[in-house]
Design a protein around this nucleic acid. Structure first.
Length: 570
RNA sequence: UGGGGGAUAGUUUAAUCGGCAGAACACCUGACUCUGGAUCAGGCAGUUGGGGUUCGAAUCCCUGUCCCCCAGCCA
């Protein structure tokens, strides 16, 4: 075994089991996985783990991974979700070897069901839904057998055929596997295989009015496709005996199911039901709202797929339920963006600065490095003029200690530009600061003073005469508490929603080079954070989403310093 | 409560199947810096309780505790 084989096999219990199987020649040494979402919603960051595991494992063992849409319940499924899920998987960086649909196997499944009936291992039950529930027993009490359980094979065959032909209304009958009503595993108490649903399926139209249940469809689909390792989440552990029972009863090719823990995050909900509510009740603007934990939302927000993959690698695969702190995802997002995102200067909340000793109407183009972390990213030129804009928060008339930015009489550096000194504060009639008059030192071009004097602060800025206006959307976490499900009596998770998780900055002014950005591209606005050009942008108006802020130690210092009352100041 | 799965710093994890509990995030210092970013150095902090076997236990045995999943004609 080579080093890399060893590494791969020892990474987690699933890879270990797979390595053993391959070594033992099980499945002829073949490896095939599948990612099997139901197209009833958008994929979210929790799915990234299952997607990555299935595709990565396949790649590691020279196998293949298919995408299979588990479309057995037409009530909930839509083509929109099929398309979105495929797009999201591709965005994550994976390409399915094949795209399959469980609905492609409806005929085979039907024939297999007849085979089970003929073997005396399945029967048509006339019990109502409520009766079936009552007959099933409870967690602690065994169930009891349906009075229809011992119908003849002929009668079952006839009834099942008529179910399929649409003779009975929804709910009138079901096909059940005949297993064991006394089993301690409730999944084995004669599970339903088919239910009657006179609804149109998004792919098979009105061809069918009986639809297979998950358990009946899943293992058989795996078998048909030749899946070797069927990897799913922990809640299916109790289903494995049924998965195996069907395959054994049919005596067909038998894949191996393995279960692993799902990925959860703090400050996040990922249940489809709740995500659907956020969308339907208008708490967010659609499935791809940048605040949503959906892959579509994260992509739109500017989160790099690599960050998600790195996080999954770190978390690994185990059977332990865990909730990852969202800070860890944020760390990987920053780490990746720091490496890859070009820098740009943009002022979100502008304060005019007049460079009193710079000639009116003149422009000087200064060289600015695109990415200090990546020399190959090169440089660009940014315009400098008499009329500049800086961030309002970068000036204080009466600065506290440790404030390194601009203040009356104080000198700072303009990023990639000159040192400037604040000489005058201009106010309106009400005393609001409306502009600053500063003098620049022509000797400090490039950011260094020939006399060796130093400044504490470096500010980002733009030339007001050249700046491009933009709308900037800032996002807070959607939920204000670590565990959104933790709510007071009588309330639901929406009680934990952050009040203003979206705030729009309409007055942002950016350096002109942003006009060359493509939609979906993420750049760093220096000192502010990473921002992604939104599809809402047009020629007239650029729209950016803040993917994430930069780490902000100054904010931390401010927060930890006991605030002085205004009366105590100065 | 029947059945099944699980428990290692605050969080997510590693420990080559009995041999020095090692990382990352978060947090705190400090250095450096033309981003209060990044980087670098350091610090804080852990084996679910009890008992046993052993020279030696996160790991094996016994016995508790706690958490998760299952009673859809959802997946």
């Amino acid at each position: 075994m080579s080093d890399s084989d060893f590494m791969a096999s020892s990474r987690d219990f699933i890879r270990e089991a797979i390595a053993e199987d391959i070594h033992a020649g099980r499945f002829d040494g073949r490896l095939q996985t599948r990612f099997p979402p139901e197209p009833n919603g958008y994929l979210h960051i929790g799915h990234a783990k299952a997607i990555g595991l299935n595709f990565d494992v396949a790649a590691e063992y020279n196998g293949i991974c298919n995408l299979r849409f588990d479309d057995t319940n037409p009530l909930k499924e839509e083509q929109e979700f099929v398309d979105a899920q495929l797009a999201d998987i591709r965005w994550l960086g994976y390409e399915p070897a094949n795209v399959y649909y469980a609905s492609d196997y409806f005929v085979q499944l039907y024939e297999w069901a007849i085979e089970l009936i003929e073997k005396g291992r399945a029967y048509v039950d006339d019990l109502s839904q409520e009766e079936i529930r009552a007959y099933r027993g409870t967690l602690t009490q065994p169930g009891s057998e349906s009075p229809y359980r011992n119908r003849s094979v002929e009668e079952n065959l006839d009834l099942f055929r008529r179910m399929k032909e649409g003779e009975f209304p929804d709910g009138a009958k079901v096909l059940r596997a005949k297993i064991d009503m006394g089993s301690p595993n409730i999944n084995l108490r004669d599970p339903v295989m088919y239910r009657i649903r006179h609804v149109e399926h998004q792919r098979t139209g009105n061809e069918w009015c009986i639809y297979p249940m998950y358990d009946w469809a899943h293992g058989q689909s795996d078998s048909i496709e030749g899946v070797t390792h069927s990897l799913c989440s922990l809640e299916y552990l109790n289903h494995r005996p049924l998965y195996d029972w069907y395959l054994d009863a049919l005596d067909v090719y038998h894949p191996q199911q393995w279960e692993f823990a799902r990925l959860h995050f703090t400050y996040t909900v990922t249940s489809k039901r709740r995500l659907l509510r956020l969308v339907q009740e208008g708490y967010v603007n659609g499935w791809d709202d940048p605040r949503m934990p959906t892959l579509a939302g994260q992509r739109r927000r500017g989160v790099p797929a690599k960050a998600l993959r790195d996080l999954c690698d770190h978390v690994g695969v185990a059977r332990t339920n865990s909730t990852v702190a969202i800070d860890l995802l944020e760390y990987y997002i920053r780490q990746e963006l720091n490496r890859t995102a070009n820098r740009v200067m943009g002022v979100l909340d502008p304060l005019p600065v007049v460079i009193t000793n710079f000639p009116e109407g003149e422009t000087e183009w200064l060289e600015a490095v695109n990415n200090p972390e990546d020399e190959s990213a090169g440089s660009r030129h940014v315009p400098f003029s008499r009329n500049l804009l800086i961030e309002r928060a970068d000036f204080m008339e009466d600065p506290p200690r440790k404030f390194f930015r601009l203040a009356p009489g104080r000198e700072v550096r303009l990023r990639w530009g000159y040192f400037i000194r604040c000489e005058n504060v201009i106010k309106d009639a009400r005393g609001n600061i409306v502009a600053l008059h500063c003098a620049y030192d022509p000797e400090t071009k490039g950011g260094y003073a020939p006399d060796g004097r130093k400044v504490r602060g470096t500010l980002h800025w733009v030339s007001a005469d050249h700046a491009v206006p933009a709308e900037v959307r800032l996002y807070e976490r959607l939920f204000k508490v670590e565990n959104p499900y933790d709510v007071p009596e009588g309330q639901d998770f929406t009680a934990n929603l952050t009040a203003n998780s979206l705030s729009v900055q309409n007055s942002a002014q950016l350096e002109p080079s942003v006009q060359e950005l493509a939609v979906g591209e993420t750049v760093q606005f220096e000192r502010k954070g990473y921002f992604c050009l939104d599809p809402d942008s047009d020629k007239e108006r650029l729209v950016f989403n803040r993917a994430i802020s930069l780490r902000d130690t100054w904010a931390k210092i401010q927060a930890s310093t006991p605030r002085r009352k205004s009366g105590e100041r100065g």
